[in-house]
């Protein structure tokens, strides 16, 4: 479980996060949603320790991550996996080498054991046979799946995904969402996803934190989104007239 306590972050005179407190649960896909510029990416980078908060704390289970020394933070980081918006795959390494990188760096496994683990992960993300290809030779969706395979290769307790669906078509985006969801449940991982994809919100939003202008404006799950009376969330989720009509129809049906 990850708990953020009253997180504030400023860059110069600009206050990007204004005291956010939120909890993220194991075995659930926890979503951070909000408009562009709401502070989602900064919040996610604070959770993983790429930024230090101006004030506030991030707790991993019963450990105050913010207060840890660099060396102790490193130990917790080996329990983290992250999927980046642009996948962040190393261009000069093949798919197999990319997935194997954390194993090479942090384990004393034999070559055979590493190969087996890599194959297991590639199989899990349905990329069997793509190991010899280079990131530039595979599609955007496949790159995301390689990113997921690399993120889970060390069997992390915490999985972070920054805009996992950006640049993907709706069908592929759905596949990625389902994959993240099933991996989360199978391994009881605390997964935190930063997104503004509405399909993701409705499909896998077990626990949703809605940020607005650096503040936590709403917390709930995907079924509560439909009936929310929070105006900010409503105008964000049901932004188009089509979605507004859809929501009206859905709430009318629910009332019946």
């Amino acid at each position: 479980m990850i708990i953020a306590k009253n997180i504030k972050k400023s860059f110069g005179d600009t206050e990007v996060l204004k005291g956010i407190s939120a909890s993220f649960y194991p075995g659930k896909t926890n979503l951070i949603i909000g408009r562009s510029g709401a502070g989602k990416t900064v919040f996610l980078k604070l959770l993983v320790g790429l930024f230090a908060p101006t004030s506030g704390e991030v707790w991993y289970s019963d450990v105050n991550f913010t207060g840890l020394s660099k060396k102790k933070k490193k130990a917790i980081r080996t329990e983290m996996g992250m999927l980046f918006q642009g996948s962040a795959l190393f261009d000069s390494l093949s798919v197999e080498e990319n997935v194997r990188f954390p194993l090479d760096m942090f384990t004393n496994m034999t070559r055979k054991e590493k190969k087996m683990r890599v194959e297991e992960c590639l199989e899990r993300v349905e990329l069997v046979g793509a190991g010899d290809k280079f990131p530039g030779e595979v599609s955007g969706g496949m790159q995301k799946r390689v990113g997921i395979a690399r993120a889970i290769v060390l069997q992390p307790k915490y999985l972070f995904c920054d805009e996992p669906n950006s640049g993907l078509d709706p069908k592929t985006a759905l596949t990625i969402d389902e994959l993240i969801k099933s991996i989360t449940v199978e391994n009881n991982i605390t997964t935190v996803i930063n997104t503004h994809d509405m399909n993701s919100v409705m499909e896998i939003g077990d626990n949703i934190a809605f940020l607005h202008l650096g503040e936590l404006a709403w917390v709930g799950n995907n079924s509560e989104v439909l009936t929310t009376e929070n105006e900010l969330l409503e105008s964000f989720i049901f932004a188009s007239p089509f979605l507004q009509r859809l929501r009206k129809a859905a709430t009318t049906n629910l009332k019946k």
Binding site: G49, L50, R77, M80, F84, F90, D91, M105, L154
Partner: peptide, 14 residues
């Protein structure tokens, strides 16, 4: 720029 360094940092690489 491609977030490779961030990716390594999160893995725990110096």
């Amino acid at each position: 720029q491609k977030e490779h360094i961030d990716a390594m940092e999160i893995m725990g690489v110096n």
